[in-house]
Nucleic acid binder design. Sequence first.
DNA 1: AAACAACCAAACAAATTTGTTTGGTTAATA
DNA 2: TATTAACCAAACAAATTTGTTTGGTTGTTT
Lengths: 79, 79
Amino acid sequence: MDTDLYSFKINLGKRIKALREERGLTQPVLGALIDKDYQVLGRIENGRVNPSSFLVYQIASALKVTMSEIFDFSKLSDS
Amino acid sequence: MDTDLYSFKINLGKRIKALREERGLTQPVLGALIDKDYQVLGRIENGRVNPSSFLVYQIASALKVTMSEIFDFSKLSDS
DNA sequence: AAACAACCAAACAAATTTGTTTGGTTAATA
DNA sequence: TATTAACCAAACAAATTTGTTTGGTTGTTT
């Protein structure tokens, strides 16, 4: 479920981090792929921001996953 | 193609508008479903903003479509 | 030990989105 | 004609994201 903003940010961050690590990419390397500083990714992965849809779209493209894949929070091991 | 921000906003807006109209919903009605003024939707549908991922997520939920469905710009009749 | 890479997090200004109000257009209807 | 609904668009303040710099931690390597 989890439809509030706080949980959304946390889950989105976890999902992006998991997908990035599955591909063996570091934040600096993924950042270079989308032309952003690694701090931008860190902020997202740690759930501190609600990133723009375009930014998530760019991340999905760089990770070669669909948007639905990124937002499929059911794939997260519930902490 | 179309990876620049300008095209992204235009295409995202067209896609949301198309999906909303397919369901016979008005901006005020869809707005009520996500507890937003209809002007917020108008701004998005007309490509004037790059909405937050959470907002798009809420719209997708209200329209009962996946995020990939919303971001599948290939389904747009090329203007 | 020193150097390096990866990452977290805070801070700041600048840019943008968001919430809201307002005025206008168009089409349908009473 | 008058009214209503739907929509576009501009404007404004407030909130938030974004870009960037800085300092710190951890683990690895030389």
